[in-house]
Amino acid sequence: MIINHPLLGPRDAQEFTFLGSASLIDRPDWQAEDALEQFSDYTYLRNDTGGENRELWFHEAGDRSWLVVTRNTFTHEITNVEMASDVARARGRSK
């Protein structure tokens, strides 16, 4: 596969390591009333749907950016690649 890195352009997927669902960005608030339940879901529960998925890829043999890659798991078509830090900010993770 080829991942079109937002900063570096098209790079071979061999340069990356895969982590999993981009939902890992949405880490719960440790002080929430039901923090333990939220963390359980966050750690163990995933929507297991084929088709378009948002995934976390790490450019380990490159610039060490974490990327959010939108990829169709049926066709491997990649429709969007974003910097994970931008996604995290957009999802309210700025302090």
Binding site: L24, R27, L56, D86, R89, R93
Partner: peptide, 11 residues
């Protein structure tokens, strides 16, 4: 790097 970029991007 995951913690830095994905969880606390503005640290």
């Amino acid at each position: 790097e995951f913690v830095r970029q994905c969880l606390f991007p503005d640290m």
